[in-house]
Design a binder for these strands. Structure first.
Length: 679
DNA sequence: GCTGTCAAAGTTTTT
DNA sequence: CTTTGACAGC
């Protein structure tokens, strides 16, 4: 009888969510209520007892990390053979797969480039011909929101009310044309283009609906309009899917996500099954009470209240400190001391913060105290110059039409190609409707370039062609060789040591080596060709790399990147007005002050972020805020966050910083003990 | 025209 | 501390 082999460690609500297969199902899962367990168990149930083949099940997540973790948990539950063909990936990865297969239907080469936010911004900058960074970001954001709402340039232009939006709509049109010329798509397109094709093409739609017989979606509250449509289109009339989400943890409204998608399910699907998970298995009661108390200041779609069978736990600490440096040091000393007192491991501690920049001081302090740590969040690694340099070569190999990568590769290292040459080449390419790379081989016939300018171009073109031929001739097994050959042929290491001082060159070369090692491992593990690798790398951040390097380390993470994770002991730092809730810069702040609705929405989202932070903690939670914080080059005076008082803490809050002693004698003693123990 | 050197400035959150 | 912007030699 189906269901009898379900593990007994599921509660009634979880069991119901796993076994419900009569159509669409929405699971409202509070923080720590075992939502991942429900998804993984449900997939196991579908595979083992309902005769579903892995090829017909798709589970979607928002981050690669979540996908990886989920995939591993499923594989530990069921036989490898049963899980064969199972798809567990992000919306964007599924989009890449879809577009690779269906590329020709929409006039796209399967080797299309994927442009990240930085690439996209560079295009917009060129189109707008301005260096006003705020304006550029605003236009980019506007275009992105239009895309996620499935509005094309024409519709956007029609709906534009302000001159600013009209300009953005014009840029949008050229931006699309540019991407098309480069055979490139941006992140938003990875979901939008599949949706558009599925809507327009019945045959494609039916093929995919045949393929996706059961769909599961994690973090459903973070879906945008486009992603909602994708779920609808993939599941069709059968509507066999399970969406798991928590409206209180919606923290991506700024990138187009809309919590209303939760409510929309209840109206779009009359037969929607709604299941609430309210029992929390993660945290002690004090932490849950604080979380409940904070979030009760928000209006919400669905009422739920977390409870747990764990004890009350220790009281929540609130520390006021003089400066951000002192805060970082205090956190380090506290962790050091507590690790000793509690006989805990480094990995039991996490330090969470609102913005990436806060990581700097913390890293500095932890380094000084010899505390091992890993930083997660921020795609900074792939934004580093040396990484973008190397990837430009790879992207060009895969897609010759990728002009930005051509420009970057051909000018790094310097090989005598500069602004003037590129301008001539660009004009030639534009009038002939070809890519810069193609233009290299044709411009020689004309007399537009001096031999001095032409020669390095032709050498470069021949070089790329040579590697390209190798990449195409040899199969996926030789990905690693090709990478090595490419890098040594470029002479990138020497370039680094030539242009930088020893220390910097070494650090950057190490980054390149790390990237190569990671790429090679990836290529081997999943037997990927160079094309697969390049498309994969655009979507992934390198969190995995750090996790494996040093498993016993304190975790530093942004609040956003911490979602879905849990730690025994959590330090939440910088809990200050202006930072959490974040209010942007002064000009931004004034815009907000003028619009009460916008301000309220902002504060509510920040409050959910606070809620996410609090609910990461299993046993203890410590908050801190600074009276002064260094921002840019000046100190800013700060007030404690409203969220601290909203937590309804019983004990009086330490609200005034004590300039004399930021460390209590006990804290000092513990820290010292810990240090002594080490030496 | 190409390239390197010097100075300034800059930071929400991410697929 | 690290990435962009302007300027002056080669």
């Amino acid at each position: 009888m189906p269901g009898d082999t379900l593990p007994v460690d599921l509660n009634a609500a979880q069991r119901e969510a796993v076994k419900y297969l009569n159509g669409p199902c929405l699971v409202l899962a509070g923080a720590g209520s075992g939502k991942t367990r429900v998804i993984t168990q449900k997939i196991a149930y579908l595979l083992r007892e309902c005769g579903y083949s892995g090829r017909h099940i798709v589970a979607l997540t928002f981050t690669n990390k979540a996908a990886k973790e989920m995939s591993e948990r499923i594989r530990s539950l069921v036989d490898t053979r049963l899980a064969r063909g199972l798809t567990v990936c992000t919306f964007h990865s599924l989009g890449v797969r879809f577009l690779r297969e269906e590329a020709e239907q929409i006039n796209l080469k399967p080797q299309f480039s994927i442009f990240d936010a930085t690439d996209a911004l560079a295009i917009i900058q060129e189109l707008l011909a301005t260096t006003d960074k705020a304006r550029l970001r605003a236009v980019q954001q506007t275009i992105s929101l239009w895309k996620n709402a499935m509005l094309g340039p024409d519709e956007a232009a029609q709906r534009a009310l302000t001159p600013s939006d009209e300009e953005a709509a014009r840029v949008y049109r050229s931006y699309e044309a540019t991407l098309n010329a480069y055979q490139a798509v941006d992140f938003d397109d990875l979901v939008r283009l599949p949706v558009r094709l599925l809507e327009q093409n019945t045959a494609v739609r039916e093929r995919w609906q045949q393929r996706v017989q059961y769909l599961l979606v994690d973090e459903y509250q973070d879906t945008n309009e486009c992603q909602y449509r994708l779920v609808q289109l993939l599941t069709g009339d059968r509507a066999q899917f399970t969406a798991v989400g928590d409206d209180d943890q919606a923290i991506y409204a700024w990138r187009g996500a809309t919590v209303e998608n939760l409510a929309k399910l209840t109206t779009d699907y009359a037969n929607l099954k709604l299941i609430k998970l309210e029992q929390n298995y993660r945290s002690v009661q004090r932490i849950l009470s604080a979380a409940n108390s904070v979030i009760s200041h928000n209006p919400n779609l669905f009422n739920k209240r977390l409870w747990s069978e764990h004890g009350a736990g220790e009281s929540i600490g609130v520390k006021a400190i003089d400066s951000d440096e002192a805060e970082a040091e205090w956190v380090g000393l506290s962790i050091s001391g507590q690790r000793f007192d509690r006989r805990a491991e480094w990995r039991d501690f996490a330090v969470l913060y609102r913005s990436n920049q806060q990581a700097r001081v913390l890293e500095q302090a932890l380094r000084n105290l010899r505390i091992p740590y890993t930083v997660s969040g921020g795609q900074s690694f792939f934004d580093k110059a040396e990484i973008r340099d190397v990837l430009a070569y790879l992207r060009l190999l895969v897609n010759e039409a990728d002009d930005p990568s051509f420009i970057r590769a051909v000018t790094t290292p310097r090989r005598g190609v500069g602004q003037g040459t590129l301008k001539t080449l660009g004009q030639f390419a534009a009038t002939h409707g070809i890519s810069l790379f193609e233009a290299v081989f044709q411009i020689g016939m004309t007399e537009q370039l001096a031999p001095r300018q032409l020669e390095p171009l032709e050498t470069f073109g021949a070089f790329i062609n040579r590697i390209q031929a190798r990449a195409q001739k040899d199969g996926p097994d030789s990905s690693a060789e090709i990478l090595d050959e490419l890098i040594s042929a470029i002479g990138y290491e020497r370039h680094l040591y030539d242009t930088l001082d020893e220390r910097q060159a070494q650090a950057r070369w190490q980054n390149v080596l790390d990237l190569l090692a990671w790429l090679k491992r990836k290529a081997q593990e999943d037997s990927l060709t160079v094309i697969d690798l390049v498309q994969h790398v655009a979507l992934v951040s390198m969190l995995e790399r750090h996790d494996e390097a040093d498993p016993d380390a304190v975790k530093l993470s942004t609040l956003h990147a911490s979602k879905g994770l849990e730690y025994p002991h959590v330090f939440l730092v910088g809990v200050e007005e202006g930072l959490l809730p974040h209010m942007g810069r002064e000009d931004d702040e004034q815009v907000l002050a003028a619009d009460a609705n916008m301000l309220a929405a902002r504060v509510q989202e920040e409050r959910r972020l606070m809620y996410v932070g609090i609910t990461r903690a299993q046993r203890t939670l410590t908050l801190s805020w600074c009276k002064r914080r260094r921002r840019a080059r000046e100190d800013v005076v700060r007030e404690p966050s409203r969220f601290i008082s909203e937590m309804g803490l019983a004990s009086p809050v330490d609200a005034s910083p004590d300039p004399q002693a930021n460390y209590s004698p006990k804290e000092r003693l513990s820290a010292l003990k810990s240090l002594l123990q080490k030496t």
